[in-house]
C-alpha cells in the first residue's frame, strides 16, 4: 500500500492533533512528545524511531500500523486500537492502556514495564521477549498468544 506522504525529522511536540486523520503516512524520526491526538486516526501508518512519549492518544486508531524502535513511554493510549500492527521494539513503559486492543499484532521485544493495562486485549499476538514487569494485567486477554515467551513476573519470583 503506497504511503500518502513521508515526513522525516519533523517536530510535532505539544501540538493538538485531536481527531486528525493521518492514515497511511510514514513518520521517520519525528517527535510527538506531549502532543494531543485523542480520537485521531493513523491506520496503516508507519512510525520509525519516533518519539510518542507522554502523548494523549485516547481512543486513537492505529490499526495496521508498523512501528519500529519507538519511544511511547508515559502516554495515554486508553481505548486505542492497535489491531493487526507490527509494534517491534517499542517502549510502552508506564503507559495508560485500559481496554486497549493489540489483537493480531507482533510486539516482539517491546516493553510494558509499569504499564496500566486493565482489560486490554492481546489476542493472537506474538509476545516473544515482551516485558510486562510490574504491569497491571488485570482482566487482560492473552488468548491464542504466547505469553510464556514474554516476561511476566509471577508472584513466586519475589518471595517475601
Amino acid at each position: 500500500m503506497e504511503a500518502v506522504g513521508v515526513l522525516e525529522n519533523r517536530d510535532f511536540s505539544g501540538l493538538d492533533l485531536s481527531g486528525i486523520n493521518l492514515d497511511r503516512y510514514e513518520f521517520h524520526y519525528c517527535r510527538f512528545t506531549d502532543a494531543v491526538f485523542a480520537g485521531a486516526s493513523f491506520r496503516d501508518s508507519q512510525f520509525l524511531m519516533c518519539l510518542l512519549d507522554n502523548v494523549n492518544g485516547v481512543e486513537s486508531i492505529f490499526t495496521g500500523c508498523r512501528m519500529m524502535s519507538v519511544l511511547a513511554a508515559g502516554s495515554d493510549f486508553s481505548g486505542c486500537d492497535f489491531s493487526g500492527s507490527d509494534l517491534i521494539n517499542i517502549n510502552f513503559n508506564g503507559i495508560q492502556g485500559a481496554a486497549t486492543v493489540f489483537d493480531e499484532s507482533d510486539l516482539f521485544y517491546s516493553r510494558f514495564i509499569y504499564a496500566a493495562l486493565p482489560g486490554a486485549s492481546f489476542q493472537d499476538c506474538n509476545l516473544k521477549r515482551v516485558d510486562f514487569t510490574e504491569a497491571d494485567l488485570r482482566n487482560v486477554n492473552f488468548s491464542d498468544s504466547n505469553p510464556e515467551e514474554s516476561y511476566i513476573p509471577h508472584p513466586s519470583d519475589n518471595p517475601v
Binding site: 518519539l51 513511554a73 508515559g74 517502549n91 517491546s110 516493553r111 509499569y114
Partner: peptide, 21 residues
C-alpha cells in the same frame, strides 16, 4: 536527553526515573 541503548527501544532520563524498577 534521549537514551539510545544497545538493546531495546529508546528512552529518556525522565522515563527511567519514573519506570525503571
Amino acid at each position: 536527553l534521549l537514551i539510545l541503548p544497545g538493546h531495546g527501544p529508546p528512552t529518556t532520563i525522565s522515563a527511567e526515573i519514573r519506570w525503571n524498577p
